[in-house]
Amino acid sequence: MKKHIYIISTLVASTLTSLVALSQTGAVMVTKWGEFGDKPGQFKFPAMLAVSKDSNVYVVDQHNHRVQKFDANGNFIQMWGKFGTGAGEFNYPYGIGIDSKGNVYVSDMNNNRVQKFSSKGDYIGSVGSYGTGDAQLKYPYGIAIDNNDVLYVIDAFNYCIKKFTADLKFLSKWGSAESIGIKLYMPHEIAITKEGNVILSDRQNHRLAIFSKDGTLVKRIGEYGEGKDAKAGQFSEPHGLAVSAAGDIYITDRYNFRIQELDGNGASKAQWLATGIFEDDKYFPLGIATGSDGCVYITDHYAHCIHKYKL
């Protein structure tokens, strides 16, 4: 019996040690909501999420082919969308962004388009169809909207970043596999830094890349590192990406099961475990967003839930 207690306490101690080692800032989980299902407030593989100025949280509920809206405490407000190809319908949506007027843009990945909705989910318009043309897309992944309401879209299989107006008119594009520095697979998420640059999660190369708005490489951040001993600034498949009002960069570091915080220059500020459990078929911190109150929200793609942290 004593032996059992000893073992348990050792286990607890070692778990705590590893948690403490990573929870340097003392990020606290404020709340967590969601579980697998198709009822309101339930999710099937949530992807990216975004937080509006009025602190509502919009979640891309990928395998339910819909968007769900919650208040800052996770109370369900509304949802829209279903599987299909019509206006307001989705086929495995992925990214999400909100403009200065509160309109919501969703990359409707397998329908090869981006759809725009009012903050209440009313359909406004869409851009994109499968193809290589300027206003066409091949599987749009992450999207971002800058302070001037310019929409940036990762056009994954055209290997470029496309820019559109808030009215979904094509502006310009830049990038190629070579110039972005990818090998085969596109970055997954895109965000705008405080300086107005574009930051990409270079998932396959286990790092981040900052470009000017027109595609000139500014800098790369990070290197590969995986497992419980991974250091700050090391990543294993960074996916989600968000920049806070203060300019800090937050990344979901998939196979390290943690969130990393960097300052605007890429220097490591903090990191903490999303789950504390390294089980790659059960947990997948994917989407990330910050609220105006400084809170950080993430989606756990495999655990079908949202975590909210206070730093």
Partner: peptide
């Protein structure tokens, strides 16, 4: 598959599916 190894300059623009260090996409 993806390579676990990090990016290195001069590498081909693709991953090597049959590498022992691969893991699935």
């Amino acid at each position: 598959s993806l390579e676990k190894t990090p990016y290195f300059n001069g590498a081909p623009l693709f991953t090597i599916s049959n590498s022992p260090r691969k893991y699935p996409v």
